[in-house]
Simulated assay, not measured.
Amino acid sequence: MKNILITGGAGFIGSNLALRLLSKGYSVRILDNLSPQIHGTNPEKTSPLFISIKDKLEFIKGSVTVKADWEKAIAGQDVIVHFAAETGTGQSMYEIERYTEVNIQGTAIMLDMLVNTPNNVNKVVIASSRSIYGEGKYLSDALGPVYPDHRNGAEMKAGNFEVNYPGAGSLSLTATDENSKIHPSSVYGITKQVQEQLVMNVCSSIGIAGVAFRYQNVYGPGQSLTNPYTGILSIFSNRIRAGLDINIFEDGLESRDFVYIDDVVNATIAGIEKEEANNKIFNVGTSIPITVLEVAKTLMKHFETEVPYKVSGMFRLGDIRHNYADISLLQNTLQVTPQVQFSEGIGKFVQWVKQQAHSESNYERSLSEMRDKGLLK
């Protein structure tokens, strides 16, 4: 399995994976449309992610929604790592057609070709997401494990941000394992669920190994600082550097599982190389929840700069309260354990950010868009 195609391979995870695979002697081909939202308006000359891989591998500029681009990309490949997708839970709630076309239809075209045309592919690795779980897993003294539904907008407007479950009494958050309930709370989450199910169902039916990785919140040097739809680390960092205040949604105690890019690459390579991964689904995270308030304070510590922050009580419809991964299957099956702790990873991220030119993040515009659509309260 020496020839590997990475769709979306000029993106954050894809470019890091490509460089690591090249160092291990693989032949890498990338299919990517160099989306301006990720790479800027002149990506061939200004995108650090694209420049990091330029002239080091075979690059096809194209779209996963175009069959002819897939035909060129799949020819002669042994493994497909399918990263190409529109990302961002908030934006997905009002750009439904685009998210569905790219994420679901793009995956369907790939699978249709694998079923109906001659090819050498023997493994497909799909980038799934923690977003497919919706709210995370909780324990109730009365009922045992429960999976709360999406939060009510009226309750959140009244400042009640925690989840509830009928008849469960008080709830304690616990790690979400791969057998947990799938009930995404955003269009993005729904599209990732469908992507995963399509790949795992179709590939097994035609004798191709499928591997799905449900990535948690991936971060690190190289992530987009201009895309306001893909993470608070970039948003907060831009505002800290500019000396601007930080708006912390809800009560600041909502939490996520942040996993460093190198650990994500290690897990993905294990999925490519190890037969033990075949036809299995894995969480990729750290199994440690980090609150948004802690994120802001950790960033300011490493920037050695304090800016005002306001816990505003604002919230986005479609956001979850808590979710962190149970990674025991990843550890026990693929012998992969995250090595980079959050504070260490943030330190590396901040050092990289300091070396980047200041750029407009379009953060305020993204808030206006969501507010106009009734999704930001």
Rank of each mutant, 00 (worst) to 15 (best):
F236C: 12
F236E: 06
S237N: 13
S237C: 09
S237M: 08
S237A: 15
N238P: 02
I240M: 04
R241C: 04
R241G: 03
A242D: 13
A242L: 11
A242F: 03
G243V: 09
G243F: 01
G243D: 08
G243P: 08
L244A: 14
D245P: 09
D245V: 00
I246K: 12
I246R: 12
N247M: 07
I248Q: 07
D251H: 11
G252D: 11
L253Y: 12
E254V: 05
S255G: 11
R256T: 03
D257H: 02
F258K: 04
F258Y: 15
F258A: 02
F258G: 02
V259T: 13
V259A: 06
I261L: 04
D262L: 02
D262T: 14
V264K: 12
V264E: 02
V264R: 10
V265Q: 06
V265P: 05
N266L: 02
A267W: 05
A267G: 09
T268N: 12
T268W: 08
I269E: 14
A270V: 08
G271N: 06
I272W: 10
E273L: 11
E273N: 13
E273Q: 14
K274Y: 03
K274G: 00
E276V: 08
E276P: 00
A277I: 08
N279H: 09
N279Q: 05
N279G: 05
N279F: 03
N279Y: 09
K280P: 00
K280M: 07
K280H: 11
I281G: 03
I281D: 09
F282P: 03
F282W: 04
N283C: 01
V284R: 03
V284D: 05
G285Q: 04
T286V: 06
T286G: 04
S287W: 01
I288V: 15
I288G: 00
P289F: 02
I290F: 06
I290L: 05
T291Q: 04
L293R: 14
E294H: 12
E294F: 00
E294W: 04
E294G: 06
V295T: 14
A296K: 03
K297Y: 03
T298L: 06
T298N: 13
M300F: 04
M300T: 12
H302F: 15
F303L: 09
E304G: 05
T305W: 00
E306R: 14
V307Q: 13
V307Y: 12
V307S: 12
P308A: 09
Y309L: 12
K310G: 00
K310A: 09
V311Q: 08
G313D: 06
G313M: 01
M314N: 15
F315L: 07
G318Y: 07
G318P: 05
G318H: 07
D319Y: 09
D319G: 02
R321H: 03
R321A: 01
R321W: 03
H322N: 13
N323R: 11
Y324Q: 05
Y324M: 03
A325E: 05
A325M: 13
D326Y: 07
I327P: 07
I327K: 08
I327E: 09
I327L: 10
S328F: 12
L329C: 01
L329S: 13
L329H: 13
L329G: 00
